[in-house]
Amino acid sequence: MEKQRVLLAEDDFDFGSILKQYLEIHNFDVSWAQDGKEALTLFNAETLAERPFDICVFDVMMPKMDGFALAEAIVSKSPELPFIFLTAKKMKDDRIKGLKLGADDYIVKPFEADILVLRLQNILKRSQRGSAIIRNTIDNYAIGKYTFYPQNHQLRINDTVQKLTDKEAQLISYFFEHKNQLVNRDDLLNGVWGSDDFFSGRSMDVFISRLRKYFKEDPQISIESTRGVGLTFITP
């Protein structure tokens, strides 16, 4: 079985060394960088060599380039790549910032290495399942004035192209399949995130806000919330 590749960015040598060894014991291929700039260099080198990473794990507080700046740089190039933040902080603002960047999870230190392994495995399973769903869809379809290209992760209107993350593409696909229907919030979370826990719920709220902005050029498209029940993707 081919090992799944992890880009780990952690500036604490002892902690990073332990995580790397533990992940490798669990059949991951780990590239470890000790600051954000080194991690970005590794990412660029592997991308050029056509050996892409499957998932990233970023410490938030690092020298030269912090985890947020690193994630932003990588998302701009590979929006489909899932990533997790590690942090010693419990600040609400940091969590929200991570969610807005599209983080798939957020783990507060200290934590057991087993937790990280399980989170990585779960995220990769969801990502692969979502990618398979997208691969099985048609090349493109019309949503009001927009054209959605699920396999290319693009949403187009006129000459404007919005590049989508993998999660955004999965969410649009799910909404389109259930358009003009009231979708239960937990069903939506389990269908796209694979979990209806608190973090997934907050993450979904951030992604819903993004989609509302993406579709704002067509007044006939909206995402309506029914408090305590779910959401409806309204489209012509």
Rank of each mutant, 00 (worst) to 15 (best):
K3V: 15
D14F: 13
F15S: 02
G16H: 02
S17C: 08
I18T: 10
L19C: 04
Y22K: 00
I25Q: 06
F28Q: 01
D29S: 05
S31L: 09
A33R: 02
D35C: 11
D35W: 06
E38F: 11
L40S: 07
L40N: 06
A45I: 08
T47N: 15
R51W: 12
P52M: 14
F53K: 00
F58C: 01
D59Y: 03
V60K: 02
M62N: 03
M62K: 04
K64H: 13
F68E: 03
L70F: 02
L70E: 07
A71F: 01
I74P: 00
K77V: 13
L81N: 08
P82W: 04
P82R: 02
A88K: 03
M91C: 14
K92L: 06
R95N: 07
I96S: 00
L99Y: 01
L99A: 03
L101N: 01
I107L: 12
I107S: 03
V108L: 03
K109D: 06
E112Y: 06
V117T: 00
R119K: 15
R119V: 13
Q121M: 14
Q121H: 09
I123Y: 05
I123R: 00
L124I: 04
K125F: 14
R129I: 09
G130I: 09
S131T: 14
A132M: 14
I133P: 12
N136C: 11
N136M: 13
I138A: 13
Y141V: 11
Y141Q: 12
A142G: 11
I143R: 03
G144S: 04
T147L: 11
T147H: 08
Y149M: 12
N152W: 07
N152E: 09
H153Q: 13
H153M: 14
Q154A: 08
L155V: 03
N158D: 09
D159K: 12
Q162E: 12
E168D: 14
I172Q: 00
F176A: 13
E177P: 08
N184Y: 08
R185K: 13
D187R: 06
L188C: 05
N190L: 08
G191M: 00
V192K: 04
G194S: 05
D196Y: 04
D197T: 02
F199K: 06
S200P: 06
G201N: 03
S203C: 05
L211V: 00
Y214F: 10
I221T: 00
I221W: 02
L231G: 03
F233P: 01
